[in-house]
Structure formats: structure tokens, C-alpha cells
Computed example of a mutant assay.
Amino acid sequence: MAVHVLHYLHQGRPQWGVIADGAITPVPGEFRSTAGFIEANPVERLLVLDGPRIPEPDVQWLSPVTANQQFICQGANYRQHMIESGMDPDVKKFNMIFTKATSCIVPANSHVVKPDAVRFLDYEIELGLVLKRDITSRETVTDENLHEYIAGAVIVNDYSARDIQIPQMQFYKGKSYRTFGPVGPYLCLLEKHDIPKLKELVLTLTVNGTVRQNDTTAGLVYGPAETLTELSGVQNLHTGDLLATGTPSGCALSIPSPLKQRAAAMLPEAEKWRLFLKMQEERPQYLQVGDVVEAQIVSHDRSINLGVQHNVVVEEAA
């Protein structure tokens, strides 16, 4: 049975608790990292947790992934998003990996600050997976043993400054501004029999009440097992680290077709990017100050419900 966990601030103290029916049962102990919480609290123990309950409205949300964990991301990992990003999914045969600065991680109901220098602010709902154990050598992860590596799931919104990310070829910088990584509200810890549901989660993102993104994780191109196998051959991963698995179609970003890209490649560099920025100016989908973005991920049977992120876009403080 899946267990939904909230990291929160109550009476001035950060705590962790199991949430159900709008109330929180605090978990005894202090845990300064997601890793510390996961290592000390197996799902089986949390399932029998008992004690006084706190109404959820009485607490302040914190991110269930703490800033001392790695934040690793997959790019263009849904077929239709590849196409809208100007890629040919039948030609692209590699898993696109990048990172975000952990200083961009904020609670799920935080304001998103639109920097003055950013013109084209985009949204990207993603399923985030939180690691259950360290991986310090090459390992083969399969659907059958995935439960040994994945502790649970969260919502991630990979906010992106497209005018930094694309023309400057700066994924890290364009996606790492402070507040560009809301996580949570809930960390859903999974048992072995829950893992197959990761392939049937429904992702929905709205802007000002209008649906912009709606898809299921069945559309992932590179799944968690394949991705963790690949990453294990590259770097060390640790308990509590976050893997954001990519976003579905429906982003504000508009990229020329492969044919137009080949034509643009013949242009001077400055002209190519002038045309790119002009194309983005024609996209009203980009976020503006005052916009409200909501993101939700649930399983069909609702046994996995990662809550709802609620972000208001605000201007950068003077």
C-alpha cells in the first residue's frame, strides 16, 4: 500500500508526517534530509503509525526533497514533446540528461519568480522519482527489481527560461533560477506491488484554469529502469536523490520543424536566433506575472495521489 508523506513546518519546527484525509500523523524524529527520512522510515513502519493528528491547513508545506540531494532531469522524454521541440523521435536515439541547481527547489505552493531578464517563462509538469538506495557502480535495473531502487514519487514543475535555455544552449542556467523547481506537496512512498502503477499515472497542468498539458506516464520513451541503468554507468546516485522524468507535450515553447531548422542553420548565428525569438513572441502561452499554474499527478485508481501544486507567477523584487 502506498503511503503519502508530507514535509512541513509546524510551530516553527520542520517535521515529517503521514497524510491521509486532510490530516497529518507526525513521524517521530528529526530528519535533515530526504535520505535520512527514507532510511529511517520503511513503508511498513509508516503503515502502522499512530498518534495525534494535525489538520493540514495548520502547517506550512516544505519540499519533500531537500536541497542537499541531487536534482537530475530527463529532457524530451515523451514522443509528442519531442516533436513539438523540433526533434524527430524516430531519429533521436539517446536519453537526454541534465541537472538543475538544488537552490531552485521550493515547496509546491511557492510563488514562481519571473526574473526581469527572462522574456519566455515556460512550465513543464513532470513525474519525479526519489531514490531508495545509493548506486555507486554500474548496475542493471529492470522493471522486476525497480522497487529496490525507487522509494517514491513526487510532482516536479521544471520551470524554464526558454530565451536562456535555447539560444544560449544553457539548460542548467535556463532551468535553475531560484523558485524554478517546485517539488511536492506529497512524497508517495511505494511498496513493490505499487511500482507498476508508475506506468499509468495521469499528469495534468493548467494555467489560469485552462488545461495545457494532459498525458499519462505510459508515454515515457526512456523509463526509470533504463534510465537508472544508464546513469549508474556515469555517476554516483544516493538515497533521496530526485530524478525528474520529462514533460509531456503542451509547453509554450515553439521550435521550427526539422526542415526549417536545416534552413536556419545556413543563416548567420545572430539572424537564426533573432528569428527564433520572434517566433516565441507570437506564443501567448508563455507565463506572465499573475498567472496561476496548477499541476496534479494521480493514478487511475487514485491510490497514488501526489497532491496539487499551486504556483502564482510574480515579478522579481527590486
Rank of each mutant, 00 (worst) to 15 (best):
R79P: 00
Q80A: 13
Q80Y: 09
H81M: 02
H81G: 06
M82E: 12
M82V: 01
M82R: 12
I83S: 05
E84N: 04
E84G: 03
S85V: 02
S85I: 06
S85E: 01
G86L: 01
M87E: 08
M87Y: 07
M87T: 04
D88S: 13
P89K: 05
P89D: 08
P89E: 02
P89Y: 07
D90E: 11
D90R: 06
V91K: 12
K92I: 11
K93S: 12
K93Y: 11
K93G: 12
F94A: 09
F94H: 11
N95V: 09
N95F: 12
M96D: 13
M96N: 10
M96K: 12
I97G: 06
I97S: 09
I97H: 10
F98K: 08
F98C: 02
T99W: 12
K100C: 00
T102P: 07
S103D: 15
S103V: 12
C104H: 08
I105W: 09
I105N: 04
V106F: 03
V106L: 03
V106N: 08
P107V: 02
P107E: 08
A108H: 11
A108N: 04
A108M: 01
N109H: 12
S110R: 08
S110Q: 11
V113H: 13
K114H: 03
K114G: 00
K114C: 05
P115C: 02
P115T: 05
D116Y: 14
A117F: 09
A117D: 09
A117C: 12
A117K: 12
V118E: 14
V118D: 14
V118I: 13
V118G: 04
F120D: 04
F120P: 00
L121G: 00
L121H: 01
L121M: 02
D122S: 07
D122G: 02
D122A: 06
Y123L: 09
Y123Q: 13
E124N: 01
E124C: 04
E124P: 00
E124I: 02
E126D: 03
E126Q: 08
E126F: 01
E126M: 02
L127C: 05
L127G: 04
L127Y: 05
L127I: 03
L127N: 04
G128I: 01
L129Q: 08
L129F: 10
L129T: 01
V130K: 09
V130F: 03
L131N: 06
L131W: 09
K132V: 05
K132Y: 07
R133F: 13
D134R: 11
D134A: 13
I135F: 01
T136E: 15
T136P: 06
S137L: 11
S137N: 13
S137E: 14
R138I: 03
R138V: 04
E139C: 12
E139G: 06
E139R: 15
T140K: 14
V141L: 00
V141M: 02
V141W: 10
V141P: 03
T142W: 04
T142N: 08
D143R: 10
N145C: 06
N145E: 14
N145V: 01
L146A: 09
L146S: 03
L146Q: 10
L146C: 05
L146F: 04
H147E: 15
H147M: 10
E148H: 10
E148S: 06
E148Y: 07
Y149T: 00
I150D: 15
I150E: 14
A151V: 05
A151Q: 11
